[in-house]
Design a protein around this nucleic acid. Structure first.
Length: 264
DNA sequence: TGGCAGGGTCATA
DNA sequence: TATGACCCTGCC
């Protein structure tokens, strides 16, 4: 049986923002269906990344005490394979926001524009289709979701996706090219592109560098370079699956599981 | 109650 | 490459 911590992965780890705990089970609408932590069909196994051996990450980083500490402290932390569109929307909204606000923005967007589903008597909502967002006005989206300047990014990106931008093709595109392609979308800089590549397009070498990761790279590994260069350093230090490891490092830093000395 | 910081991006210089 | 503006709110 594969090790999977639903609470950690679906709620605490901040890679997905719309799962709700109902009757003790985490559930959400994903790709037009209700998905719960208890599901074990092919779609669920892929989404929860259940067929990957996360123990092998420890071998890949053998000898790195900080990495070992983070990985061993967070068994069952998995990196999801979300629908790319859902990850894209969530992480455009994430820009310059804290986790609790990202969660409330995503849920406001879903309840306002997404399709409603019933689960155990509770309402769950899916992500609105690109065409739905593409047809909204910026002022409406701003006033109803309170997402500020991100409204424009969301609408313009939705228009490009609805117009045939080859999002799903990026699964099979080499990382650097896929990243540059994603960054053509409004509201998608390097950090958001890496989040979409890692959480929604299967690129386990993508290494999102946010404020927390920049801090921990400096404090724990003594790497103080620009955020762009930090990605390359991470890949050298942690290997081709550095994105999977990043998720545990990020969580360890953000929650204080491993302390960061320098906060500046 | 006030002020800062938040899983950044973009335009400008 | 560096700097500031940008919407709004959670948190100290």
């Amino acid at each position: 049986m594969s090790c999977f911590n639903a609470e950690l992965t679906l709620y605490e780890s901040a890679q997905v923002f719309h799962f709700r705990k109902i009757d003790g089970i985490y559930a959400a609408v994903v790709n037009g269906r209700i998905l719960t932590e208890a599901d074990e069909d092919a779609f669920a196994r892929h989404y929860f990344d259940l067929d990957r051996d996360y123990q092998s990450l420890l071998k890949e980083c053998a000898g790195n005490e900080t990495v070992e500490k983070a990985l061993k402290a967070l068994p069952g932390m998995r990196v999801l394979n979300q629908p790319a569109w859902e990850a894209l929307v969530a992480f455009i909204l994430s820009a310059n926001n804290n986790v609790s606000r990202i969660r409330s923005l995503v849920n406001e967007l879903l309840t306002t524009y997404g399709k409603k589903y019933d689960y155990c008597g509770e309402a769950l909502y899916g992500f609105p289709e690109p065409a739905v967002l593409a047809n909204l006005s910026e002022s409406e989206l701003r006033s109803r979701v309170r997402c500020g300047y991100r409204a424009k990014y969301l609408i313009e990106t939705a228009k490009m996706i609805a117009d045939g931008f080859p999002l799903e093709e990026l699964w099979a595109t080499p990382y650097e090219i896929a990243r540059k392609t994603l960054m053509q979308l409004p509201g998608v800089g390097g950090k958001v592109a890496d989040c979409v590549l890692l959480f929604g397009l299967g690129h386990t070498c993508a290494f999102p560098v946010d404020v927390w990761v920049a801090r921990l790279m400096e404090d724990w590994f003594h790497i103080s370079v620009s955020r762009e260069k930090m990605r390359d350093e991470a890949r050298k230090l942690l290997g081709e699956n550095c994105g999977l490891i990043q998720q545990s490092l990020f969580h360890a830093a953000r929650t204080g599981l491993i302390e960061i000395q320098k906060k500046g």
